[in-house]
Design a protein around this nucleic acid. Structure first.
Lengths: 230, 230
DNA sequence: GGTTATAATATTGTCAGACCAATTTTATAT
DNA sequence: ATATAAAATTGGTCTGACAATATTATAACC
C-alpha cells in the first residue's frame, strides 16, 4: 500500500467533498465561490481551481462561467467519460460487454419475479408495439429496442442497478454493432419481447430467462461467426 | 440537449485523450511533460495543468512530482472515487447493492457453465479451506470470503465483467454490514462454497445458482429483518 | 572501468497578480 | 413598476516567479 504525500490539490478536493457531504448538499444546490474557497481553505486560487475543475470532470461539481458553481446532478456522466476513454484507447471486447448485458437483463427478470413485482405490462407492451411498428417504417430499431429493455430494467425497481445498466448500455452504444436483421428476425424479436412480458406477468422465471437467452442468441452468433473480439 | 461552449481546458483534455488513443499509449508509459504540452498545444501552463490534473483525477494519467507524467494503470480507481463520494453524500441502499452482487455472481456461474469453462477447482477449494480454517482462528472472515468470490468471478474469464464486479464489491465494502455469524452459519457457508465448486465441475447451472441463492439468503434476511434501507 | 557522492538540470507544485469574458446585481431613467 | 444601463461578482486564461522533487551529468574515488 503506497501512501504518497498528498498534494495540496488532493487535500483541497477531499475537503470540498467532505464539505458537500457534511452539509448534505443536493444536486442543483449552489456551491461556494472560488473566492470563498480560497479564503476558507487558505490556499491560492490556483490550487482551488485545479481542485474544482477536477471535481467537475468527475461529475461532482458543475461550473457556470460567471455564475458560480453548483452541485452536479448527473453522477453517471463522469463514469461514462472514463469508460468512453478506456474504450477508445484500449478497445473493448464486444463479447465481454454483451455477456454483461445479458447477465444484467437476466438479473432484472430474476429481481422482478423474486421480489414479486407486478410489472407495468401495458407500458412494456406499448413499447413493444412501437418496436413492431418500426419494422415497417423508417425507424432506428436500435433505439426502440433499447427503450424496451431500458424499461424492463426499470421495472426491477432498483435504482443503483438501473444506473449501472444505463452506464453499460451507453458504453455498449459506442461499439458499432450492426444489427440490420431481416424482417423475419425483427418479428421474432418482437414476439420474444411479448413472451417475456407474459412470463413476467405469470411470474415464470425460467420461461422469462429462457426467452431472454433466445433473444440474445442471434447477436452472440453474429459476434462469434465473424470472429469479432474487439 | 445543451451543448455549452467548451472551455479551453475541456478542449485540451480531449486533445490529450486523443493523443493517448492515437499513439496507443499503454499503462505505465511515460507521457509528455507540461512544457511539451504547452508548446504542442499552444496554451498556457495554467490550462495544461488544470487539464492534466483533471485527467489524473479520473484515472487516466499519473503525475509524479518532479518526475513527469505517466499513463495510469488503475482504470478502476477513478470510478471508485466517484462512487465513494456518491455513497458518502447521498447514501446508498444496501439492499439494492446486495441484489446487484447477487445478480453478478449468479451471472458468473452462468458464464462459466454456458461457455463450458473448466474452473480451477484446486484454487477455489484452497481458498475455501482458508475460509474454513479462519472460522476457528482470529481471521477477518470478510476478507477470506471476498477472496473466494473474487476468484469465482475471475473464473468467468471476462475481464470487463471482473472489473465491474470489483468496483461493486469495493463500493460494497464501504457499507458496514456486520456478518458476525455464529460458527454454525459460517460452516454452512463453507459447505455452500464447496457445493458451488462441485456444481461448476459438473456443469450444473441450476444447482450452482440455487446454492448461491441459498448462500445469499442469510444476509438478505439480516437486511430485511432490521429494516435497513440505507 | 565501475561505483559512489555531488552538482546541475529538468519537472511538477504552489503562489501572486493581472486582464478578459460571462453573469448577476445594482443603480438609473422612463 | 418596468426597462435599460452601469457596476460588481465570478469564472477563464495568461505570465512570471520560486519551491520541492526527480533525473541526469559530473567528479572523485577505489
Amino acid at each position: 500500500m503506497k501512501l504518497q504525500k498528498s498534494s495540496l490539490v488532493d487535500i483541497v478536493m477531499d475537503r470540498i467533498k467532505a464539505y458537500i457531504s457534511e452539509n448534505k448538499m443536493q444536486p442543483g444546490d449552489k456551491f461556494l465561490t472560488e473566492k470563498e474557497l480560497t479564503e476558507k481553505l487558505n490556499v491560492s486560487r490556483t490550487v482551488v481551481r485545479e481542485a474544482i475543475i477536477s471535481l467537475q470532470s468527475v461529475g461532482i461539481l458543475t461550473i457556470k462561467p460567471g455564475g458560480g458553481m453548483y452541485i452536479a446532478n448527473a453522477q453517471v456522466e463522469g463514469i461514462r467519460n472514463i469508460l468512453t476513454h478506456h474504450f477508445e484507447t484500449y478497445g473493448l471486447k464486444v463479447k465481454e460487454l454483451l455477456e454483461i448485458r445479458k447477465i444484467l437483463e437476466l438479473g432484472a427478470l430474476r429481481l422482478i419475479i423474486e421480489n414479486n413485482i407486478d410489472v407495468d405490462a401495458d407500458r412494456l407492451t406499448k413499447l413493444n408495439k412501437k418496436y413492431e411498428a418500426g419494422i415497417y417504417t423508417d425507424t432506428d430499431m436500435k433505439t426502440v429496442d433499447a427503450d424496451f429493455h431500458r424499461q424492463l430494467i426499470k421495472e426491477a425497481n432498483n435504482e443503483a442497478f438501473f444506473n449501472l445498466s444505463t452506464i453499460i448500455n451507453q458504453y455498449f452504444s459506442l461499439t458499432n454493432i450492426d444489427l440490420t436483421t431481416d424482417e423475419q428476425g425483427l418479428l421474432a424479436s418482437a414476439k420474444e419481447h411479448q413472451n417475456i412480458i407474459e412470463a413476467l406477468i405469470n411470474k415464470d422465471l425460467v420461461t422469462a430467462q429462457d426467452t431472454m437467452t433466445t433473444h440474445f442468441k442471434p447477436i452472440f452468433m453474429w459476434i462469434n461467426q465473424e470472429g469479432r473480439n474487439d
